[in-house]
Design a protein around this nucleic acid. Structure first.
Lengths: 218, 218
DNA sequence: TCAAGGTATTTTGTATACAAGATTGACAAT
DNA sequence: ATTGTCAATCTTGTATACAAAATACCTTGA
């Protein structure tokens, strides 16, 4: 059981925004949502407040809250920042990683490989998340770890979509190998460069994906 | 006039935490605060929720919210991340800055210099903030800019305190000169390195400051 | 005297009622 | 016909009332 209704609702709303039930620019009516979730306005308001803090919706005083999906430009910007944060993590991790964590990293990467072979995009996404999380943790900087996880979570739906592009999973795996090798060699700069490429290529790929999807959607 | 009471209260609470009225670990009682601010619990709850999102307090379900000041370790971690984010900003700004913005940067730096000469720490802090804000903006990455401003805001009270260390303002100015020169020369790597030093030295300085302050406080 | 269980109190989480501001529609005047 | 103003309605923001959960205290038994 979730801790609070408002948390449960925040998660649910996040999902509804990601899966397109609520599109960009839609107003989220408090009373509508209240009846939809069969709760009062109070937890709805708290949930909306949380989403607003995480940037998923924007709150205009006395006007209401509106869905605010990042446009292509903002997405690329976010991926650029993500790439840099991950690069820092990787650089630090290369210097600080423990033997056991290195073994875990190898294991996570193996699990990624199996998911690729099984053509299991969902599985790959989860294992990939684990892989990156290990690097964040091994940066030895808990604050950095939190920031990375926050941004990762925010970009999650976009990273997910583009895994379905043909051949992307395999390429992603190859990039992982580079990263692991660099970290194992304790080569911080190489690790940083490798993971920066790995992440920023996603931003570019996503851009192309969007461009190719747009006409089809209309 | 502020837009909402809850916003006003959030700001006020922030101030009360920063100035030490509420110390680390204190529980913030909703009804007490409600009577203190002469409002109902609702806006208090919203304000506390906001502070919790920004990490200033921690919310334990069914237990209440507690002030959560970062310890020395976490502070150093935060400065480390700040240094990296600013380094990225500076690198990008060196490549992308416009002529007019470069002039603004010079102007802001001049104003910093005047504040130093006038021994005006508050003034210096404000101008320094402007100086950095210009670099964030000139990174050309609005998302990065927002993240930098967010973290800058969070570290504000700690940056401020350590400006009072003798000689720090002058040293800070010298570091600024390096940064400006590197950006003007469009040398991204040098600009990144210069600002990284500039920021991370603050984390270290703060650490020393804390260490020297602790015994005096007891 | 100490421990265990239960009750009472305190406190958070939720619901509802109320107030204030904003938007939209109609009506009137130019 | 168009525009401006006023009012009605809708929606957010705030207050208060209620419910559930956790803690603290008290009582009772060994």
């Amino acid at each position: 059981m979730e801790r609070k209704r408002s948390d449960r609702i925040a998660d649910a709303l996040e999902g509804l925004i990601f899966d397109g039930t609520f599109a960009d620019g839609d107003r989220l009516d408090e009373v509508q949502l209240a009846s939809r979730f069969a709760v009062s306005r109070t937890p709805i308001r708290e949930a909306l407040h949380r989403l607003s803090q995480s940037g998923l919706v924007v709150q205009i005083p006395r006007r209401g809250v509106f869905v605010r999906q990042p446009g292509p430009v903002e997405l690329i910007e976010m991926f650029e920042v993500m790439a840099e944060l991950e690069a820092v993590s990787a650089r630090l991790a290369a210097a600080r990683i423990s033997e056991t964590a290195l073994a875990e990293l190898h294991a996570a990467n193996e699990r990624c490989k199996h998911a690729v072979e099984a053509q299991d995009t969902d599985g790959y996404y989860l294992e990939n998340e684990q892989f990156h999380a290990i690097i964040y943790r091994q940066s030895g900087n808990r604050f950095l770890e939190q920031e990375c996880l926050r941004l990762q979570r925010r970009l999650q739906p976009f990273r997910r979509v583009q895994l379905r592009v043909r051949g992307r999973m395999k390429q992603s795996m190859a990039e992982h190998e580079d990263v692991v090798a660099a970290i194992e060699a304790a080569d911080g700069d190489r690790a940083a460069a490798a993971i920066r490429r790995h992440v920023s290529v996603q931003g570019e790929k996503f851009h192309h994906l969007m461009a190719s999807l747009k006409p089809a959607a209309e």
